[in-house]
């Protein structure tokens, strides 16, 4: 019962924040509110007992993305350009996609249903044998690092490659004026 109440209040918070983001025109407010939105979804993950995901969401979604958006905001005007024209087509698309999703929700298995398909494949085996074989209490870690070690290697490489790509785009040497000493940037280690 209390879980339901918490869920209802969190979802209504998220709804209010989403509406405020939609109707706000100031970029700073929008960025801060999307950070708050991430924080509330982190709270929802805690409520669903997915503490690892909540950790990541709170740190990356609420913390790091907000900081990156703020850093990017320095290059943008403070106010969103107002568009007076009424947009009919996007509205129709939004409502169509939304009602399609609501229709699909009805076919999802109930939350935490042990007989749903995703809980029938390899999860029972991992849960049953992982502590006896590995003696590690946290099944998430054993699945992530041992059973699915190869996937996690791929994820790490993806993080590395993505970071590398962004760094090359932002600090690449092409087109840079070499004798410009006015600004402090990553040029120091380029040379």
């Amino acid at each position: 019962m209390s879980t339901l109440l918490i869920n209802i209040s969190l979802v209504s918070f998220m709804l209010v924040i989403a509406l405020m983001i939609t109707f706000s025109h100031r970029l700073f407010a929008i960025i801060v509110m999307s950070g708050a939105y991430s924080l509330i979804s982190a709270a929802m993950f805690v409520n669903l007992d997915a503490v690892d995901v909540a950790f990541t969401e709170a740190a990356v979604g609420a913390g790091f993305s907000t900081v990156l958006f703020l850093a990017a905001m320095a290059w943008l005007p403070a106010e969103e350009k107002r568009d007076k024209a009424l947009v009919i087509l996007p509205l129709i698309v939004c409502f169509a996609a939304g009602s399609l999703l609501m229709w699909a929700v009805a076919y999802l298995p109930a939350l935490g249903d042990p007989s749903s398909v995703v809980h029938q494949h390899v999860a029972p085996r991992y849960l049953a044998e992982s502590y006896d074989i590995l003696h590690i209490p946290n099944v998430v870690t054993t699945v992530l690092a041992s059973y699915r070690g190869f996937d996690t290697l791929g994820e790490t490489i993806v993080v590395f490659t993505a970071g590398l790509g962004v760094l090359l785009i932002l600090t690449g040497k092409t087109g840079r004026v070499q004798n410009d000493k006015a600004n402090n940037d990553i040029r120091d280690e380029d040379e």
Binding site: F64, V67, L68, A71, A72, W75, L134, I136, T141, T142, A145, S146, G149, T152, L153, E155, T156, V159, F160, A162, G163, V166, L167, L170, T171, G175, R176, V177, D180, N183, N184, D185, I186
Partner: peptide
């Protein structure tokens, strides 16, 4: 598992820090 997780932590921490420094110090030529 311990060593592998350490590798993941190192990559994630330094990638995020590197991205922050690149974003904060970005300057259009």
């Amino acid at each position: 598992i311990l060593i592998v997780e350490f590798g993941v932590g190192l990559t994630v921490a330094s990638t995020i820090l590197g991205l922050f420094m690149a974003f904060a110090g970005f300057d259009i030529p």
